[in-house]
Amino acid sequence: MIHFKNVDFSYRPKVKLLSDVNLQIDPGHIHGLLGKNGEGKSTLLKLIAGLLFPRKGAVDVMHFTPSQRPPALLRDIYFLSEEMPVHALSIAQFEKVYAPFYPNFSTLQFDTYLKEFEISSKDWKMNSLSYGQKKKILVAFGLATNTKILLMDEPTNGLDIPSKGQFRRMVASSLDENRCIIISTHQVRDLDSLIDAIIIMDGHEVVLNEAIDDITDKLLFRVKENAQPDASVIYSEESLRGVWQVSENTQHEDSKLDIELLFNAVCANKQRIQPLFNTKA
């Protein structure tokens, strides 16, 4: 569905933000896009949306070139940026203005999502609402567009605790086999139970792009009271409960993925982790 081939990108000529990125993203998953600050997560999303153009290489999204911004592609992509546009419109007006651009938009779904987010009236002016409320409206709208690709940059920022749970339920229920949802976030705990594939960026490249099942198949996440020297351990960090370890899952044991631990392990020791995966990156 989304294919990056040897993509380079930079905002300034001599400072590369993305370097030789190869990436394939398939539909039917909720992808978590993780990376440190300034690694290029938002840039990656903008390249998919056609808001930025690669300096080198090619981006292919559903057989379109996003930089050409064809309507046939744009009507199947919804991008929820971290900073939201200011609309001096009521929710009803916003829906009236923007929904007709999206042929698969469902008013019923939009109303349901708004209700779930406890937005009780469509007459509310969007520019008079709080950051979190605006985000709820745009999340609800984005899900209701039923676009094949949904890109969200830090969607849980500004959401209160109950809304984060509602957000997870809504996103999970909106996924189908033809839809691809990519969520860029630092709030990994918020999306722990939601995402089923992980893309990790480090050193201006994609270092891991795998489904969670594949990750837990090859890596074992566990906590031990005492850390024993073990060649299979890839990464460990101490905590109050003991020592958290990421090791090779040679025995195919079951373990629960700890996204934060995985991220730290990948950043600390990608040379050992990458060869374990027949990576799509």
């Binding site: 903008k46 744009l74 200011v86």
Partner: peptide
């Protein structure tokens, strides 16, 4: 922010 919204309009 507004630029993103503008360019993402399917037209």
């Amino acid at each position: 922010t507004n630029g993103c919204a503008y360019f993402m309009i399917p037209a």
